[in-house]
Design a binder for these strands. Structure first.
Lengths: 188, 188
DNA sequence: GTCTATATGCGGATAGAC
DNA sequence: GTCTATCCGCATATAGAC
């Protein structure tokens, strides 16, 4: 999978920026190739299909997201701060130029009625990472109620991302307020 | 707009069921026509384009959703029950056979990088309805904090819908718990 | 690796007969 | 209103020359 070169990187850069802002179906491969300065023959030697390129872009993006999240966690000193750091990371990630219109993973899941296995797997990994990490981070904050709180926070995070599709998006402001109230309710 | 007949209804039935489960881009008009038992000529005399049909399906669905929500509100006796009735309505609406895979309105917004005006308007109406109604219903429950609570609940509702794209959907269970805690926090 | 050309199929929309 | 046929454009993927 992939070509391992600067060509490969330019391909993934273009794919990530175009697929997840304009949409996958709405972005012909030609446009990707133009942007990347790569020829069709090169693309199809590295990837068997358009979907494989999508999956590769998702995988790379997932790693970048985890890294950004990790940095946001490290910046916080308290257990509560580390748990809420997911919103810092979201703010940072959503503000990136050329970032996704709402969420690359949910968006990919939404675009395929039944997604190719590789794409489904990437989305699943994204969800898994949220569940595992949120549950771990919640333990020092609310103890045995960590799992319940993690479920609630994943709901909120997913809500923040999907709210970007409505015009009334308020960034993470409301989400942070909700998260705070949930923690309060579970620590009081 | 529209043909005003049983043909029209069959067309909208097929459009609603197919567009919002399989996806708009993924559903050719031919498939709609087959399902509806309608010819292409008929469709294009009633609607100028595929997008116009999508918009008409969204509009009809919006009315049905408001009606279902109204009924759920009426079934509740207390102010708190009426505010939380949105989740009853969601449960009912999401369980309908041939219902949307996640949310017809968010899904439509997601499929178009820049949506046609008619579709954008339908999504906007959906969001507006949530904001207006939730804020009104929240007043007798939390008084001056109604607006804040309404924002939070819209976030939760949107989260519930988008969570259907992940495999880990828990229906409205977690959402109801969050809503309950939010109300508690604002009434205590 | 790039370029150009192209095979191939599909989808939206229209035309004409009935 | 239905049917069949079709124009037209686009998109994925491939082939061949360099």
């Amino acid at each position: 999978m992939g070509i391992r070169s600067k060509t490969e990187e330019k391909l993934l850069d273009a794919a990530e920026e175009l697929f997840f802002t304009h949409g996958i179906a709405a972005t012909p491969v030609d446009v990707i190739l133009d942007r990347a300065g790569v020829s069709a023959a090169t693309l199809y030697r590295g990837y068997p299909s358009k979907e494989a390129l999508v999956a590769a872009a998702l995988t790379r993006r997932h790693k970048a997201w985890l890294a950004a999240w990790d940095r946001a966690i490290e910046r916080q000193a308290t257990a509560r701060g580390k748990l809420l750091a997911v919103f810092d990371a979201l703010d940072e990630f959503m503000a990136r130029p050329g970032g996704a219109r709402w969420c690359a993973f949910l968006g990919s899941a939404a675009e395929y009625a039944d997604a190719p296995a590789e794409i489904l797997e990437a989305v699943r990994e994204d969800t898994n990472a949220y569940q595992t990490r949120l549950a771990e981070l919640a333990v020092p904050v609310v103890g045995r109620q960590a799992q319940a709180l993690a479920d609630e926070l994943l709901l909120v995070v997913t809500g923040v991302l999907a709210m970007r599709l409505r015009e009334a998006g308020q960034g993470t402001t409301t989400a942070r307020r909700v998260a705070g109230l949930l923690i309060e309710a579970r620590t009081a």
